[in-house]
Every structure is written in C-alpha cells, then in structure tokens.
Design a binder for these strands. Structure first.
Lengths: 353, 353
DNA sequence: GAGATCGTCTGCAACGTTGTACACGACGAA
DNA sequence: TTCGTCGTGTACAACGTTGCAGACGATCTC
C-alpha cells in the first residue's frame, strides 16, 4: 500500500485541498457543496470525486463566522435524571434533527446561578438561540431584564406571560387547569379527603411557582365541589423525586389517617407515594386514590398503573422550535405566549367511575 | 431614557466594539479576556468596564476557526427515552461541564445509517471529538475502517477490543461477567429453572451483540453450576422496552409454567416482566425471582424492588472523557480498551439467601 | 551613560468559508 | 455584424479571533 494512502488524521481537509485535486477554484468547490446550479456536469462530478477522496466536510465554525448562523440551538433544562425532561429532550432532539438543526444540551441542576448564566448568554456565544425551562428564576428577575441576549423561548409552567423580556417567547402548560382536572376527577369518583403533594422549587415569592399554580388548581376544584380548600392538607417536599413522595405519604398518613385521595405534583412523587402508601398498608385505589402529573413512561407500569395528566410534549416542542426559529430569522415582535394542551389519562390508581 | 440605552438585539458586540470604547487595541481586549498578565491594572479595569457595558461575549466560532478547538464534544447514544442513556447523558454532561466543555447530543434511534453517519464524521465538522455508543454497527464495520474521522471513544458492550479503528478508544462493560454474576446469584439462592430475556439489536452476526454477550454469561453461570445451558430458554424480544418484557413473560410462562428465575437484559424489560408475571398470577420472588441490568432509578421503586446489576457510570464517563481529551490533545497511540466495573445490587425481587 | 532587560501595548496575518462582482466564451436576436 | 444574454467559473474581501513579532518607554546593570 503506497504511503500516501495511509491517510493519518492530521489537519482535516479544507476547500483548498479539494480544489487543488479537482483543479478548480475553492469557490467552485463551495458551489458544488451547496448545489449551486450553474456548474457543468463534468466539473461537478470531478469535484465530488475529490470530496470523496479527501473525506472533506465543511467546517461549521468557518461557515458560522462567515454567515452568522450555525444551525445550533441550545436546550437548557434542569436535569435529564427526571424522565419528564429526558423525554422532552429526546422529543426536542428528534424535532430539531428533522429540521436540520443540532442540539446542545445544558443542564442547570446547580440552581439559580446557572440559570442566570443561561439568560446572560452563557460565557461564550455559541448557538443561534436557546430554549430554556427555568425552575429557580422567576418573573421578578425576567421582568427586570431589558432584552434577552439571544433568541429565547421559555418553556414550562410558572411564568406569567405579562413579564417576558423583549425578544423572548413562552410555551406554557396550564398547570392550574390541569391540576384542577386531576382533582375534579378524584372528586367525581367520590373521594372527599384529598391532599396535595409537591415541591417548592423557586426562590422567588411563591404564588407563581410551579407548585403554587398546581395548588391553586387543586383548591379551585375543591371549591367548585363545595369543599373547604383551606382544610385540605398541602404536603411540601424538598425535591421532585420518588423518595420525597414516599416520605410525604408517610407523613400525610400519620397526620391524616383517613385520607382517601392524593394529588401529586409529578409522576415521580406519585410513584413514591404508591410505595409509601403500601408501606403503611393502604391499598390503591381502594383506600387511597392517586393521580400524578406528566405521564412519564413509568406511570403505565406502576402497580397499579398511574392515572395522570399528560401534557402534549409534541405540541410543546414544535411550538417552541417554531417560535425560536422565527426569532432567529429576524422576527422582532413582542413576546408571545402559547399554551400547550393536556389530557387526563385514567388508569388503575383511581377507582372506576 | 436616552435612545442609546435601548440596546436592541442587533449585531452582537465584538472585540472591536469593546476596544473602541476602552480606547485600546482589540488585541489588548483579547488579552484582558484571557487574563494575560502583562496588562496595567488601570487598563484592565477600563477594558472590563467596557466589556460589561457592551455585554460582550467571545464568539466561539471565531475562536474555533483561529485556534482549531471548540471545547465541544458530541455524545451519540441511541435514545434518551431509555433511562439508562438519559442518566448516562446527565452524568456525561455534568462531568463535561465540570471540565469546561460543552456537550452536543446526537441520538441515533433511527438505526444503522445514522450510526454510520456518526462514524463518518457527520455532515459537518463540529466539535472536537465524539463519544459514541453504537448499537447497530458492529465490529465488522469498524474493522474495515482505515481511521476514524475525528477523535472517538466508543462506549458500550458489544465490541471486542481487537478491531477498533486507529484513532479510537473503548470503554466497555463486561457484560458477560456481569450477567454471569446475576445468574449465579439466582442459582445460589436455589433457583434452577432459569430463563433469559433480551433483545437482538444488532444486524451484524450475533455472537458479539450486547445480548449475545449476556447470553454467554448466562450460560457460563449455568454451566458452572452443573446445569445444561442448552436447556435454558432464551426469550428474544423486539426492543428493550417494558412492553417487550411484559409480553416475554407471558410467552415464557405459557411455554414453561414451572419457571422460577428470570435474568433480564435490562431493567426496563425486567420491570415489564414483573408486570407480566403479575398478570399471570405469579408472585415475585416467591414463584419467580427476577434480576435486571442497569440499576435504573425505577428499579428501586419497583414492586418488589428490583435486584439488578449496577455498572459504574461515573467510572465509565470519566474514563471515556479522559481518553477522548487525550486524543483531542494529540495522543496518537494504538486503540485502548478500559473495562468499567459493576456490582450486583440485591433487592426484593430475588429471595433471601 | 550605553546597553540590556522588562513591562505594556499594538499591527499584521491567518484560520475556512461565502457573497458580490466580474471575466470569459457561446449563443440568440436584431 | 453587433449587442445582449446566459452559462460557467474565478478573484477578492470580510466574518471575529489570536499567535507572533516587535515598538516604545522605563528601569536596571556595569
């Protein structure tokens, strides 16, 4: 084998290398790469052969520098360890790949400081825009921002559309209504001694936190069924994990032994609560009915299968990407808010109607 | 408010803009940004103020073009919908963020063609290297490659270290031994009528597929306990999901009603199998003991909690990143293989010893 | 007091790519 | 024949950044 064939990984080939081999200008190579029509067929194939021979790939960095666009979008979510977010991320990646865009994933589990860094445009300018699910940062912070540093779409639950910074949009899930639907479902199935379990995750004042909105929905439903919302226990947990749900169930049963329905802030907590109820000898849904939130894949395989709220992730992701791309392409209008739909999925953890 | 303060998102500020305000050369601004020591204190603060005023952020594309490095690494895995991979991705992101690197996520659920595209360096040159968990592509394909297109570290289970392409490394999990450990555990607890459930995911000839290696371990353990490996049923499923595990359990019980132990290819299948066994009125671990593989978070909260094999993800991720960064920094040695450790986590789905 | 050394700062070139402008020959229409 | 048009290809400049070489004045050394 001639030594020239031993193509070691040195400097990657550039347009110039290809141009030299095909004996054309680099611009012609560029034209071929981009399917520019006015290239003679014979030239085109000669260039394509040279590209194949060198293994040439366009260098994104140079394209971005020249054209100002990279086709990269950043997705910033708290943590992929929550199946809600990992499923969301996958949906997002699929949708973005389908549109020819690449996804950079940034997780902000370290908290508020990291979220603020996202808003401040990170340390270096990288992609064309960001889709951001904030947890710690609330409206107060956003309201005070003059303008976002790059095209931004917020997703999530606990922002009010009134205070979005200029240059951003928002896809929300109507938490209050969704939780009201879940609660109403328990009430319609005859349960009366309900409790709510959720985490208080924001450091901003509470009313618009994710849990705050869900609690609001919980209380609205009780009120509409002529029950006193003030008397229904709200169990606050430290985090959204299964372990928290389990312990919350223990504490709730200790304080309210005759509990017969549990509305949980997410599926993980609900699944933990199932375990916690079992620990205390309660049957589900016989003694206590349970509803979750998210319709994570585990919900279907829980024992019993979990009744839950299913937000339309596909809708959410598509809407977010649509608006982000519009912003990237220069749209400068006022912030927009879109509400993604949801539905109640009834399974075995709530009694038959 | 003076109109100049209404900093609309136009062209992002560059070194030149900052330099003009601070009345220095752009090179000096660059020096300040990079903490170059020989800058007078007064100059430094003046520049820093100008940076703050403009909101300047270095533009990665230009840096990359100039220096040849981006600090971006790509992680290519099949799908974040498997909690094994989403947890792995999160571990990876944390570790990479800790080392000042950014992660691009690419998922290859579409199959072999997409995996080959990863190996071929994608359509555009983007990051500095890639960490790749192949599923469809096997050794035959890799063995025939002259050289990888960019620094590459494979992770996973079903490659043999003999055939890695030059320029790549490999962090493997010793599947065969791990599954043998899991199987031995069931045998030591007195079970004798065991079956294995797993998916056949590769299109390459089977022996070194992920399932193939696990089956090998399964059989080795049987052999060592004086049982005939040929008589133990192997239940093949289409995919690694819960639903597959459930159906597999149904089929297995139909064919082998006296089954008393189940070794599953991953936790999802095992969790599905738990549901399938319950469907058929079997108790776990009373009638049938079950072991999984991965120690996904759900395993702990299954009913009963799942005994499973826990691969050391932290180790895996660190080793992969170490080797990748060495390659990026110019290491040109022969392919290396590192084996990540694992342990058996005993929980309620297998009987007491 | 002359030369060497140090600290501070700057100008130039180049990384790989693409938009614009234009050159050149061939062909069609007047 | 002449002018305009079309198809094909090229030269040049610029995107924002950083390594290198060196300018310039101040300080040190003998």
């Amino acid at each position: 084998m001639p030594p020239s064939t031993r193509r070691a990984r040195r400097r990657p080939p550039t347009l110039r290398d290809v141009a030299e081999i095909a004996d054309v200008s680099i611009k012609t190579v560029s034209n071929v790469v981009h399917d520019y029509p006015h290239v003679r067929e014979s030239t085109r194939t000669r260039v394509q052969e040279a590209i194949a021979a060198t293994g040439y790939r366009p260098q994104l960095a140079a394209q971005q520098l020249r054209t100002g666009a990279s086709g990269i979008v950043t997705l910033a979510v708290p943590s992929l360890n929550f199946s809600y977010f990992s499923n969301l991320a996958q949906t997002f990646i699929d949708e973005a790949q389908g549109r020819g865009r690449t996804v950079v994933l940034h997780t902000t589990s370290a908290g508020r400081d990291e979220e603020i860094e996202v808003l401040r445009g990170f340390r270096r300018r990288l992609g064309d825009g960001v889709i951001f699910n904030p947890m710690q940062v609330g409206e107060d912070y956003l309201a005070q921002m003059e303008h976002v540093d790059q095209p931004t779409v917020f997703i999530g639950e606990h922002l009010s559309d009134a205070h979005l910074p200029p240059g951003s949009d928002y896809v929300r899930i109507d938490n209050t209504r969704a939780t009201a639907d879940a609660t109403a479902h328990l009430l319609e199935r005859g349960r009366r001694r309900l409790a709510f379990v959720g985490a208080m995750e924001t450091t901003d004042p509470a009313p618009h936190s994710s849990s705050g909105l869900r609690i609001e929905g919980f209380r609205q439903a009780l009120w509409r069924h002529d029950l006193d919302p003030a008397r229904a226990p709200i169990e606050e947990v430290a985090d959204w994990h299964r372990a928290d749900g389990r312990e919350a169930a223990h504490r709730l049963l200790d304080a309210h032994p005759h509990l017969d329905g549990l509305v949980c802030g997410n599926d993980e907590i609900a699944l933990g609560a199932l375990a916690g109820l079992r620990d205390r000898g309660r049957t589900v849904p016989g003694d206590v009915a349970v509803v979750g939130y998210d319709d994570s894949p585990e919900a279907l395989f829980a024992h019993p299968p979990l009744t839950t709220i299913r937000p339309d992730k596909q809708f959410l992701v598509k809407a977010a990407l649509d608006m982000l791309i519009e912003r990237i392409n220069g749209y400068e209008g006022a912030p927009r808010t879109i509400t993604a739909p949801h539905e109640l999925v009834v399974r075995g953890s709530t009694p038959e109607g």
